[in-house]
Design a protein around this nucleic acid. Structure first.
Lengths: 195, 195
DNA sequence: ACTCAAGAGATGACATCGTCAACTGAAACT
DNA sequence: AGTTTCAGTTGACGATGTCATCTCTTGAGT
């Protein structure tokens, strides 16, 4: 029927799914090994057959999210009929959308776990290099690094403020995340037009 | 000698200090009510006389940090002999410095606790309105809101990436947080010069 | 001056959590 | 067929947040 390896891979996937779902619905506090196991159809000790500890499980969830975002970035870059500026805007909005619809997952993606602080940064690499290439197409290799770093930082901050619903404060005059991204993209794209 | 109210206020302050110190040195995991109590010279149950629960204590720590940052912003704005652009840069760097030297406290300041998600946003108000006034001095009332929101978001994101030491990645060509802030300030100050 | 309510703090207890050690059973290998 | 490997279960332990209860000092009312 099913080999042992297949069964193990299936439960591993089920554990990741369960953890991601619990994170989405109930926040980080809801992700307990007991709940994850129960939702995956196993018991509390089972995760230890697939992950070193709880932190490793969470890192795996975050890494998987970075991978799917990397896929989206890659597809976006290959998309024909889009200008470099449009691709740049799209990439930033893809990141912000994660923060918008899965805020807890988003926080996890940008958290640096005490055990292995670089783990999630490594998982983010592909997403970021894809985006870097898009920026380079717009502003040239020379300034691409600085601008890409600035854009990713800014998008991250915008998503963060929006997640804590601070952007909605009337103090900012009702700006949306898209407004801020557009302002930024226009400034940079405009600058590149001057060269 | 000392009245009861004074003594209570003193332990309340000691609890806040203890929590802040534990947070700085050992991260959020190190902040346990037992450890906080011990460091403040009381036992685990004492905090419940001053705070509703652990979350309320952490919110109080974060709020106090926002208050001192607000003081710094206020002093910076009143500083004579500084151009509006310099004040703007200084305000952003003040925020980034918190992320640089007290990363755990910084994360707390931008976290939205499940119990009262708006509590820390309220504490951040004064800092942000002070900064908003500085930005208005540079770019005018009209665009101040949008630019201030963008700048705070960006600074937040930059501090976040720096905290997870992702800015150090050679992929970005060795940019510093100051570089990114300057790039941003120049773009906005330059734009305002055009008007 | 005496009484007594109030409240800060201590303490015992409980549920929950992450984690480990020992155990079980079935699949995979020789 | 016998043996090993390994996914999964179960019991136990220490740590933690939180509540109920108790103690004791302070401070106000008479």
């Amino acid at each position: 029927m099913i080999s042992r390896a297949e069964s193990a891979a299936a439960t591993r996937r089920a554990l990741l799914d369960a953890a991601a779902e619990l994170l989405d619905s109930g926040g980080l506090d809801a992700v307990t090994l007991r709940a994850v196991g129960a939702r995956a159809g196993v018991t509390r000790g089972a995760p230890y057959r697939h992950f070193l500890d709880k932190e490793s499980l969470l890192i795996a969830v975050g890494s998987r999210a970075w991978d799917t975002l990397g896929d989206r970035m890659q597809a976006l870059r290959a998309e024909p009929g889009l200008s470099a500026a449009e691709k740049m805007r799209g990439g930033l909005l893809a990141l912000i959308d994660v923060g918008r619809f899965q805020p807890h997952l988003y926080k996890l993606m940008f958290s640096n776990p005490p055990g292995d602080p670089t783990a999630l940064a490594r998982a983010a690499q592909r997403s970021q290099t894809e985006f870097l290439a898009v920026v380079a197409d717009l502003v040239g290799e020379q300034d691409a690094r600085r601008y890409a770093a600035l854009l990713i930082s800014s998008a991250n901050g915008i998503a963060g403020l929006e997640a804590s619903s601070q952007l909605a404060d009337p103090k900012w005059g009702g700006v949306s995340a898209e407004d801020l991204i557009d302002t930024l993209v226009d400034m940079i794209a405009g600058k590149s037009r001057h060269a």
